[in-house]
């Protein structure tokens, strides 16, 4: 499908940039005229993915978060959120609802479950020591 718009962002993995990232994505998709619910879903999923980069990927170290976005001619939004942090040894386990490695920091273990519930498709690729890439897809508006 033909790409009609795209963007690339990179920013330091600081928690203040969680709000920046979801607001930037909201602005990026605005000309698709999303419903309040579509916009809220996308912002929530992005917030989860970027928080994962900061809390888990770059745990106790600094690093850059990369956020690429694409919109195709049918209004499908694809967002790729990537860190070059510690990576995930067992992605299937990490995606289990309520599984968390940071319970003492009050992380609920729902990040991937929220992304899956609020997007049409979620893909995760990760390699220990190299980092993690999360790809979110969501259709905005009708399919045709």
């Amino acid at each position: 499908m033909k790409t009609v718009n795209e963007m690339k962002l990179s920013f330091p993995g600081k928690s203040c940039n969680e709000a920046f990232a979801r607001s930037a994505v909201a602005a990026f998709v605005m000309n698709l005229d999303p419903t309040v619910s579509e916009l809220s879903d996308l912002k929530t999923a992005v917030s989860e993915a970027v928080t994962n980069c900061i809390v888990h990927g770059y745990r106790r170290q600094s690093g850059t978060v990369f956020l690429n976005g694409k919109i195709d001619e049918n209004g499908k939004v694809t967002l790729r959120i990537r860190d070059k942090g510690c990576g995930i040894a067992d992605v299937a386990q990490a995606m289990q609802p309520l599984f968390t490695t940071a319970a003492d920091e009050e992380r609920a273990g729902l990040g991937f479950a929220v992304m899956q519930s609020f997007c049409d498709r979620v893909r995760v690729t990760s390699a220990p020591g190299k980092g993690t890439t999360v790809t979110l897809e969501k259709q905005i508006g009708g399919d045709d």
Binding site: R22, S40, K43, T44, S47, E48, T51, E105, E106, R107, A108, L110, G111, A113, V114
Partner: peptide, 13 residues
């Protein structure tokens, strides 16, 4: 106006 799953941790804590 907005909440992600961090809100769940906040409530449980």
């Amino acid at each position: 106006s907005f909440m992600d799953s961090s809100g769940v941790g906040l409530v449980m804590g």
